[in-house]
Simulated scan of single mutants.
Amino acid sequence: MNQGKVKFFNDDKGFGFIKDSASNQEYFVHVSALIDEIRENDEVTYELKEGKKGMNAVNVQLA
């Protein structure tokens, strides 16, 4: 499991970005990939899955 922090999340549009704690890379996250509700600055754990435009965060839950 990867760990990171929610950099941005828009509830209305249902997507956002997570910044990885180890690599500082940012990953797209869609509301359909959430286990828990998330907000900006939440600490989360997640897995990565190849998406149409690169790696996406999936199975996202609060740390």
Rank of each mutant, 00 (worst) to 15 (best):
G16S: 12
K19D: 00
F17H: 02
I38K: 06
K5T: 15
G16W: 09
E37C: 03
F17T: 00
N56F: 00
N24A: 09
E37M: 08
D42F: 00
A22C: 08
S32C: 09
N56M: 08
N24L: 10
K5S: 10
K52R: 13
N2L: 15
Q3S: 10
K5E: 14
R39Y: 11
Q25D: 15
I38E: 07
G51R: 05
V29W: 04
D42P: 00
L62D: 01
S23L: 05
N41Q: 13
E26Q: 13
S32T: 14
Q61P: 00
V31A: 05
Y27S: 12
E50M: 14
M55P: 07
K49H: 08
E37W: 04
K5Y: 05
S32E: 14
G54L: 10
N41W: 03
V31K: 12
A22V: 13
F28T: 05
V58S: 02
D42H: 01
F9R: 11
D36P: 03
E26P: 02
F8T: 11
K7D: 10
L48A: 10
E47I: 02
E40N: 09
G54T: 10
E40F: 03
N24Q: 15
E47Q: 15
R39D: 13
G14T: 08
A57G: 02
F17C: 01
G16V: 06
V6N: 03
D20Y: 08
K49L: 09
D12C: 06
N59I: 01
A57W: 02
E43F: 03
S32V: 12
V29D: 02
S23E: 09
S21K: 15
S32M: 12
N41L: 10
N24T: 06
L34K: 13
D20F: 05
S21V: 04
F8I: 06
Q61H: 11
K19R: 14
Y27K: 15
N59E: 07
A33F: 04
H30C: 09
V29Q: 02
I35G: 00
K52M: 06
V31Q: 12
H30S: 12
Y27L: 12
R39I: 01
D42S: 00
A63T: 01
H30G: 04
D20V: 02
V31S: 08
S23N: 09
V58P: 02
Q3M: 10
A63D: 04
E26M: 07
S32I: 11
E50I: 08
N2T: 04
Y27G: 11
M55Q: 14
V58F: 04
M55N: 12
V6A: 03
K13S: 06
E37G: 10
L34T: 05
A33Y: 07
V58L: 04
G51H: 06
R39A: 12
N10M: 08
N2P: 09
F17V: 04
D12E: 15
V6E: 07
Y27R: 15
E47P: 05
E50G: 00
Q61C: 05
K5L: 11
K13T: 02
F15L: 10
K53C: 00
L34P: 07
M1W: 06
I38C: 07
E26T: 05
V29K: 02
F15K: 09
F28R: 03
G4M: 12
V44L: 08
S21G: 13
F8Q: 11
I38V: 14
E43L: 09
V31T: 06
I18G: 06
Q3V: 05
F17A: 01
K7L: 14
S32A: 11
V29G: 01
M55L: 15
V60D: 03
L62T: 01
E26S: 08
E37S: 13
I18A: 08
